[in-house]
Design a protein around this nucleic acid. Structure first.
Length: 393
DNA sequence: TCTGGGGTCCTAGGACCC
DNA sequence: TCTGGGGTCCTAGGACCC
């Protein structure tokens, strides 16, 4: 049996926990009203009753709920609370799969002898989380992860939903299509276009038909989903496959010096994470979003891994000018993929002294930062550019 | 409603190889 | 000489999720 656990209105709940004055009030975490181009990340249930929800533009949230308490996310704090919660899970099972900062799957198979039947264990875990962290969770229990995940969604907030063995199909059959995890806006449109509006209609469709509508993978995924079955890739092992950073600027970027500085800043951010987490990245990708929201990307795979901010920056600049159409830029992003653990033996570069030196300096800075997070070390250019970064955030 | 940031996986076409 | 089949890797874009 699998238990899916989801923290309720996580970011907003942590804020209410840390500042009891906020309890019972509409807390909206994301951005401050009036700041251009922000969205709601999470909001408390009190705010939801005003119609506010995740991904809503912050100014719209403000119109709906002017008395709301608007806060900027404190990711570091949320990650702290998140690990407290995950640690509780490990007291109940060695098999815990953390799926994101606020949710995890717990395999409760074989824990009966220690903790009793799974549905009882679920309530024990729920109480323990509340006691140790002050947070409430929503839970779903089922014979596979996919159904458990949907069940926990049905139990929000602070609930528990148990789909007993052999009733998975009945459970799924009664759901509206938009509650099926993996069906988003576009897929729903495609399905509606060919006359599918309910789960039972899709249950009658053949696999080849679904594949012809949605493509091979999505077709198979949906075919299994409407039968309460889990697809192979649904909760595959979580390991880093890419590291990236992107910024939507408060005002569109037009000046090439500012654009290049922005790219350097992003390269800096990504490189430090790469070093800190011990990755070698062989592919660099760059993302540009223009003022009209049209988005393009370009990537290049290198024969050797990125080893310094400078190398990442220079590659990004090269890619940028291959793609840039001269229009005002709303967002820039840099990332790296094709990752390998940097502890693996690496074929050393033939003429690599320059890069090695740079990397050694960056390693030193990264470890200093590790010891003293408040330390700010940056290049002269980025110091001058503090203006744009502040404006941009 | 004027649309964040960090990710994952899939698709389709092209290059290249045997 | 007008053109196979299988496989891998790369690229750009898209859909989806939290």
């Amino acid at each position: 049996m699998y238990l899916h656990v989801d923290l309720d209105a996580f970011f907003a709940s942590v804020e209410q926990l840390d500042n009891p004055d906020l309890k019972g009030k509409p807390v909206i975490v994301g951005a401050l009203p009036g700041t251009n181009r922000g969205v709601v990340s999470t909001c408390s249930y009190e705010a939801r009753s005003f119609g506010v929800h995740s991904a809503m533009p912050i100014d719209k949230a403000y119109k709906l709920c002017p008395q709301g308490i608007f806060l900027v996310p404190r990711m570091k704090r949320y990650h702290e609370k998140s690990s407290e919660v995950m640690n509780v899970f490990f007291d109940f099972s060695p098999d815990v799969k953390q799926m994101s900062v606020d949710e995890a799957f717990i395999d409760l198979s074989g824990t009966e002898k220690l903790f009793g039947p799974p549905e009882k264990t679920a309530f024990t875990i729920k109480a323990k989380i509340k006691e140790k962290t002050g947070l409430t969770v929503s839970m779903g229990l089922a014979s596979n992860r996919y159904v458990a995940k949907i069940a926990s969604g049905m139990s929000k907030p602070d609930g528990f939903f148990y789909v007993k063995e052999n009733s998975e199909l009945d459970f799924i059959t009664t759901l509206p299509l938009n509650k099926i995890w993996g069906i988003g806006k576009k897929t729903l449109e495609k399905l509606n276009k060919v006359g599918f509006y309910t789960v039972p209609q899709i249950q009658k469709a053949s696999l080849p038909l679904l594949e012809s509508i949605l493509g091979k993978a999505a077709g198979l995924f949906l075919y299994k989903a409407v039968r309460g079955q889990e697809a192979e890739n649904f909760s595959s092992e979580v390991q880093s496959k890419s590291i990236s950073a992107e910024t939507t600027y408060k005002e569109d970027l037009v000046d090439t010096y500012i654009i290049e500085t922005a790219l350097q800043e992003l390269a800096h951010t990504v490189m430090f994470r790469l070093i800190k987490e011990g990755w070698n990245g062989f592919t660099v990708f760059l993302k540009i979003r223009y003022e009209d929201f049209s988005t393009c990307s370009i990537q290049e795979t290198l024969p050797i891994p990125i080893s310094s901010t400078d190398m990442l920056y220079k590659t990004a600049i090269k890619l940028f000018y291959q793609r840039y159409n001269g229009k005002p830029i709303r967002l820039l992003g840099i990332g790296t993929t094709n990752l390998e653990k940097s502890s693996l033996p690496q074929q050393s570069e033939l003429f690599d002294t320059e890069n090695k030196k740079k990397q050694q300096i960056e390693m030193a800075i990264a470890s200093l930062k590790e010891k003293n997070p408040n330390l700010t070390i940056t290049t002269a250019r980025l110091m001058k550019a503090t203006d744009i970064s502040k404006k941009g955030k």
